[in-house]
Design a binder for these strands. Structure first.
Ligand code: SF4
Ligand code: SF4
Lengths: 145, 145
DNA sequence: CAATTTTAAGATAAAATAGTATGAAATCTT
DNA sequence: AAGATTTCATACTATTTTATCTTAAAATTG
């Protein structure tokens, strides 16, 4: 039951790193992030592109360039990040994927599954990047198990 | 957010097919199932092996052989099927997979995630193959979207 | 024994995911 | 203006996971 792709987790970790560096209120160098978090620079770059296009990050090229949050972290929800990096249909997947489902005669898991997904989504909407950053400590952003 | 693998859904559909055929109280031919449900015979075969080893199905070789439920469908939970076909660690996966998680300073999603997984599991434990079979109609077992 | 049918292990193919390479565009420094 | 730095964009390659096919063995029937 893997939920999030590696790219998405990378993006999340990187965002949290940026939040934790935020006091400087400068653009954070992508190479620095990739080295600090031990993530491939180019891979991270790609991930950041999506986040920039979505308006979560703002970027600046040239010397002393980099990325920074485009909005205060309170206004960025976990859901928005996940939808950006996993695809907008993230919460639309069905459990069994049978023919003609969800309509006439749904499987017994249907109602529960719909409710379950809605709840998950609501929780992710409710959780902001700021919430995440508050609880997590920077050391933990480094290595995964 | 794909939850179940194709093999697991195949297994589930096939089990439901068997349940719907159950009145005959005979061994159901695997080739027949694979053709009716349009699933690769050999792939289904492998899936059934796992279910047989787990004691969900009983098999019989030779002419007129096949598989049948080893227990009444009321006693087989959706959870057991999923754990068998997806692996026993299905519900143990973490959301972010950061270092040292779940201990000292868990991420803000931790508690929610634990609760969420438990709920999902409970619902799957609660749902039996008989429940599934009752609600679903046989035609729907054929094609997936 | 010959035919049928599940079991078993392994090879192959397809798809999804992860990572790399390259060059262009924007910006800064001098 | 020249050259260095850094993100942007796209395309390609490699790795891993998932799905399918091949082949052969064991059990059962007649
Ligand atoms: S009834 Fe709903 S949950 Fe069940 S297989 Fe169909 S769409 Fe999925
Ligand atoms: S704190 Fe819990 S949910 Fe969050 S990353 Fe760690 S183990 Fe996963």
């Amino acid at each position: 039951m893997k939920v999030l792709s590696k790219g998405c987790v990378y993006g999340l970790r990187a965002l949290l790193y940026i939040v934790s560096e935020k006091p400087r209120e400068e653009y954070v160098n992508i190479r620095e992030i990739s080295e600090e978090l031990d993530i491939s620079f180019h891979f991270l770059t790609k991930t950041f592109q999506s986040l920039t296009q979505k308006g979560i990050l703002r970027s600046y090229r040239g010397p002393n360039g980099g990325v920074t949050l485009d909005r205060p972290p309170e206004e960025v929800s976990l859901a928005e990040i996940i939808l950006t990096l996993e695809g907008e249909d993230f919460f639309d997947k069905c459990l069994l994927g049978l023919a003609g489902c969800g309509q006439a005669a749904p499987c017994p898991a249907h109602e529960f599954w719909i409710a379950h997904k809605a709840e998950l989504r609501a929780e992710f909407e409710r959780t902001s990047l700021a919430d995440m950053g508050r609880k997590i400590n920077k050391e933990k952003l480094r290595l995964g198990p």
